[in-house]
């Protein structure tokens, strides 16, 4: 609720403040620009719902982009195969992290922090510099999309994003796996007592998140036609922020995938406003997203406190 209001308020304020802000093109660009974050944030939502956290997403995304650039450009793999392999690696990496977290009882933040350095380092091993991707498949995909009239095109990246959000909503709210995730995040002990597969669910959640991070990397290469080992620095906070702004509670068990979708749009709108203005220091983007995240967590605390009393 609050999330939707903030989004509308931001748009109205920006529309009043800047000319040409309220146009389909701006909104479309916002989707195009933030599609990778949106996909990563959906994965993050699942992890947070299960009561965990994944700090490795930005690094996994970076690794995916250079991996794609290397195998398509350097080894001559066909692009679709490379993309599938990249997502596979992401899922595998996530499953491994989930396994370590669950079976060795090591805090999730530590395992995924180590995973973050591991994946970031591996990205630099693959390529220390940004690499351009030249592929007919990429050029072709770049021109395709869903025509929306008036010469506007919903390109593949945002399209994947919307599909992932829809799939995430179905999985979270309509399947057994989704219910297990909520149960695990709500209270692990009672979930285990009810006979739910706690271990398998937790491992799978990190697999989903790793896969989403890799898919975010694929989208990022689609948008920029290059791989870069430094891409996605600080992405983990944006993804966490999007989920929290969207109403997902950090202690797990409560939240909505659709809320995360709105959260991503809010963060995207702030970035668009900063881009539109041009006179503001880009450092404000970091401070604003940190501050916004803090504000929403405080709001959650307040609501939780009122419910108790």
């Amino acid at each position: 609720m609050a999330t939707g209001l903030v989004l509308v308020a931001l748009f109205v304020a920006a529309g009043a403040g800047y000319e040409n802000f309220l146009s389909a093109r701006v909104v479309l660009n916002l989707f195009k620009d933030r599609a990778f974050l949106g996909v990563v944030a959906v994965g993050m939502t699942f992890v947070i719902l299960s009561g965990g956290i994944d700090l490795s997403v930005g690094a996994v995304m970076a690794f995916t982009t250079v991996f794609l650039a290397k195998v398509i450009g350097g080894l001559g793999w066909s692009a679709p195969v490379a993309m599938l392999a990249a997502v596979g690696i992401g899922v595998g990496f996530g499953l491994f992290q989930g396994w370590v977290i669950h079976y060795f009882r090591i805090p999730a933040f530590l395992v995924t922090l180590a995973g973050m350095f591991l994946a970031r380092g591996m990205a630099f091993v693959v390529s220390p510099r940004s690499v351009e991707i030249r592929s007919a498949f990429y050029d072709d995909l770049g021109e395709r999309g869903l025509p929306l009239g008036e010469g506007l095109l919903l390109t593949v990246g945002p399209l994947i994003y919307l599909v992932v959000v829809a799939a995430g909503m179905v999985v979270a709210h309509g399947t057994r796996f989704g219910r297990n995730v909520y149960a695990l995040g709500g209270n692990e002990a009672s979930a285990a007592l009810m006979g739910l597969p706690v271990g398998a669910t937790r491992v799978a959640v990190y697999g989903v998140c790793g896969g989403c991070a890799a898919l975010g990397g694929v989208i990022s290469t689609l948008a920029l036609s290059s791989g870069d080992p430094t891409r996605g620095t600080g992405l983990e906070l944006d993804a966490i922020a999007a989920a929290v702004i969207g109403g997902t509670v950090l202690t797990g068990g409560r939240g909505w995938v659709f809320g995360t979708f709105l959260g991503v749009l809010i963060l995207g709108t702030i970035k668009t406003i900063l881009d539109f203005d041009g006179s503001l220091d880009p450092a404000w983007l970091r401070i604003a997203s940190g501050g916004l995240l803090l504000g929403f967590i405080l709001l959650q605390k307040l609501i939780a406190r009122q419910r108790v009393s």
Binding site: F109, A283, I287, L298
Partner: peptide
């Protein structure tokens, strides 16, 4: 005092602090 998880509070500071240094 506010009762945030340490990871989250310091993660916010990690991002905002770097922003502050840049600013």
């Amino acid at each position: 005092r506010v009762g945030l998880q340490p990871i989250i509070a310091t993660l916010v500071m990690m991002v905002a602090g770097r922003g502050l240094a840049m600013l």
